[in-house]
């Protein structure tokens, strides 16, 4: 009966994962491997294709002050506008992750302040994990899989923009070698969210209890879903250490952008999350 409960939990989390996250790993891998005939993404590999891609997805224009427009080169403007639309998408993704978190059995019964803390510290880790299925060694899908942006293009942007994605590619290529599927991912994301060691938590015990149940469910899931993959559970959990470092570095880069880019403005939700984070 206990393992039946753990299977039911896995099913439930997989269902809410499918409900809240529009681009699944299965769909992303089909697009990346060219297995869907109707879904060939537009490739952004230079500034010209970036402009075309922008027009294609009708990305919202970042309001620019007129007097600055003449001071700045057109390319600078494009980079800022692109990262501005990345921020809007990230904010949307935070709200999707929040809905997913609320669907984890027991989460909404936790102290509301602890729910906030778990999201504040967990959400960027979750977003990085969710980026992995969209990436391969050559680039990443963006805009719900409509666009493929090459890794080389991201590396060619001016500093510090060019340093933003490279660590995520390095992580993702290794993470993808574990070959988790969407149902495994759903449980892993819940484990990340339910971390009892986030700074400032008021009531750790119920969080640890919830996480323990999800961990059991993940362990069972991986054994059943990947019977030939030795120590997969341990390998997946080890990724959580890399994730914390990635988030620390990412937040530092964002701080740097705030100090160096005149026209940089951080989305209010992302500001809330990153303020006093690490």
């Amino acid at each position: 009966p206990e393992s039946a409960d753990l299977r039911a939990l896995a099913r439930q989390l997989y269902e809410s994962y499918l409900k809240y996250f529009p681009l699944t790993k299965a769909k992303a891998r089909a697009i990346l491997s060219g297995k869907t005939s109707d879904n060939t993404p537009f490739v952004i590999h230079d500034m010209k294709s970036l402009l075309e891609g922008e027009q294609m997805i009708n990305c919202r224009q970042m309001p620019m002050q007129e007097h600055r427009r003449s001071d700045m080169g057109i390319m600078h403007e494009v980079e800022l506008r692109f990262f501005h639309s990345c921020q809007s998408r990230s904010a949307e993704a935070v709200s999707e992750v929040t809905e997913f978190a609320k669907s984890i059995p027991g989460f909404v019964n936790l102290d509301l302040n602890d729910q906030v803390t778990l999201l504040k510290y967990g959400v960027i880790e979750v977003l990085i994990i969710m980026m992995a299925p969209l990436m391969n060694k050559d680039g990443t899908l963006i805009s719900y899989g409509q666009i493929f942006m090459t890794r080389e293009f991201l590396k060619s942007l001016r500093k510090p923009f060019c340093e933003m994605m490279e660590p995520k590619f390095e992580f993702s290529v290794k993470f993808n070698m574990l070959e988790l599927d969407d149902s495994d991912m759903a449980l892993f994301l819940a484990v990340i969210i339910l971390s009892g060691d986030r700074p400032g938590l008021l009531n750790v015990k119920p969080i640890e209890d919830l996480q323990e149940t999800v961990l059991h469910s993940l362990e069972l899931q991986l054994k059943m879903n990947h019977p030939d993959s030795l120590q997969l559970f341990a390998k997946v959990l080890q990724k959580m250490t890399d994730l914390r470092q990635l988030v620390t570095d990412h937040v530092q880069l964002i701080q740097l952008l705030k100090e160096t880019e005149v026209d940089w403005c951080l989305h209010p939700l992302l500001q809330e999350i990153m303020r006093d984070l690490y």
Partner: peptide, 20 residues
């Protein structure tokens, strides 16, 4: 609470995601 107004709103909002 003031520091995390939007997160609070997202968490307490019962069904549809709030307009960001």
């Amino acid at each position: 609470k003031e520091k995390h107004k939007i997160l609070h709103r997202l968490l307490q909002n019962s069904s549809s995601p709030v307009d960001l």
